[in-house]
Nucleic acid binder design. Structure first.
Lengths: 188, 188, 188, 188
DNA sequence: AATGAATGAGCCTTCATTCAT
DNA sequence: TATGAATGAAGGCTCATTCAT
């Protein structure tokens, strides 16, 4: 039952993979169409243009990631524990989804980037709240969320990329060390 | 614009700025030529093709950065002090050269990236040595240089970018905090 | 211009004429597109690139020629008669298609030439068989087909070219003489 | 003592070889300059432009060929003998100078060709006279020199090309047969 | 005479986007 | 909805030719 949702998903999946491998400008719409079993024309029914497709994909990826993270969170645990658990989950997610990492890094470092309204996503809001609580509890430095992210999420993506590209081989021990490093960077 | 060096420099300067603003694929060679006061054809005397221009520029930027850093190093100081001083210098450099930051981030996150031989640059080797010494002195975690970089240089670039784009406003105090965070992330 | 066949034919026709007049390298794809009533881009749907277009055209021309020749053959006649009739038909064909002559000569004398698989065309095979029979019947010299061709088809093209360019004026009598010369060159 | 003559010769030699291998339009002036040990600029001192270079080279080649042929002629022999001897010399010359063959064929089959005034070369005039005598003596068909050429020189070049490209292997016997064929094609 | 850096027009080719079917 | 042929603008690159030295 190939409905709209499925078709969009197929387009997203193919686009993600192709852009990860080839880059945005080396990924023609025609190729996306062919590999996702649709036609060039139909993509323009679902998306305004190529840019819109990319932005939509980015939003999809971002919220999917938040959802995944939230699913790993355990509010019963101590907040420090929760942080570390989430960072480990994030790192694993990046390692398990190398194309996603490539896509995200390209997207967020291109002159493309438009302030997407991803702060509105409910799951992301939940994650942000966790940080706000930690700040209030004097567990981490009182810095804007963007900076917290720069010292935690950013290194983790970069780390995963190193691993995914085979430049280093992350052992379980190193992963624990990495999560520890994130925490040390922001803890008060 | 008398000699080859000057011409190459002019081309590099313009290319860096344009790619920072527009991205690689939205920066035609013709525009680079015009803005650097030359012709499209002559660029191909100096560089094999567009890719080669970019790779050469990247190398130039990378070694220039190392040179700048080394010039700020003071071997007399205690090694911890030296680290922090260098990270602060790095952060300042990124803040003072926003186009460079944009260019580097794009370059290193594109399917472009070729293992450039930047490990050979003498200044970079000196910086690496500093890390090796710190590891031997049990001051920082015994991790591969790539991972050390992921928890120090990577966040600093990202931080500078946030500042350069006006998303956050880095105060001197925050800069000190940031450098502290880098150190905390890697210290033993 | 309803279907693919027609469009390809239009492109072939225009390409043949332009290359005959201007030569391969002085015939831009854009001109071919314009004169064949299409766009530059669409040619690349039908042909991989300019070279492919030329090679395809050459094949088309070659097989078209064989077909024309075969249509003039009369297996009832004595084999010597058939030969002469075919050579006369060939000469006429060259005279009636001056652009084709120019194109073929350019193509076959350029560093282009790729061993095309024109030996496989059924009509060409028939023509080759005729030669083989004549050899077996001790009517013509036992030489490889390529050499037979060099003393018959080659002079006839060259002769037609002289006529087409107005350097000489071929009378019917001279045409008969020419065919006779071909035959004398190869007969035993 | 690198005088003008030598330099021109070097340019001619290189141009001949390069065009034979790569074709006219794939042979940049810069390459000719480099391989002939001169500069692009100097070629434009000797020749008006690229076309002029080619035409001059063609003239050089053509007259050189005539000179070579004449040197092999023996007026003492019977005229039929002389013809065959000259055709054999021609065939040998083509076989010994494969680049020359490629160049000539390209040149004479391109929309380039300008009526060069090669009828004026004294050696060529001598060769033409031989044909005129043979016609007057009723030894060969009374045809314009161009047509005589089409049935003799043209097949011989084509034959040599086949041999040079390795498509056929010309034995001494086949060469004699070939010369015989030329004669048979034009004899009365 | 000689060099070769510099110019810039021109061409092949790609690809986002449209639209007839 | 869906297709994919068609368009045409744009860009990378080449190379004949010039000219300052």
């Amino acid at each position: 039952m190939s409905n709209v949702k499925d078709k969009k998903k197929a387009i997203f999946r193919v686009t993600l993979k192709l852009i990860a491998k080839q880059g945005f400008h080396n990924t023609p719409m025609s190729q996306i169409a062919k590999l996702s079993g649709t036609s060039a024309g139909i993509i323009y029914h679902y998306f305004e243009n190529k840019e819109d497709l990319i932005h939509s994909l980015h939003y999809e990826v971002k919220t999917g990631m938040a959802q995944e993270l939230i699913s790993k969170d355990d509010p019963q645990l101590h907040i420090v524990k929760r942080f570390k658990l989430l960072y480990m989950a994030l790192l694993d997610y990046f390692i398990n989804n190398p194309d996603l990492v490539e896509f995200m890094l390209q997207y967020e470092n291109s002159p493309y980037e438009k302030k997407t309204m991803w702060k509105e996503d409910s799951n992301i809001v939940k994650l942000f709240n966790l940080i706000n609580i930690a700040v209030k509890d004097k567990l981490i430095k009182p810095l804007p969320i963007e900076i917290i992210s720069v010292f935690t999420a950013t290194p983790l993506v970069a780390l995963a990329k190193l691993h995914n590209k085979g430049i280093i081989e992350l052992t379980d021990e190193m992963k624990v060390t990495a999560v520890e490093s994130c925490w040390n960077a922001i803890k008060l």
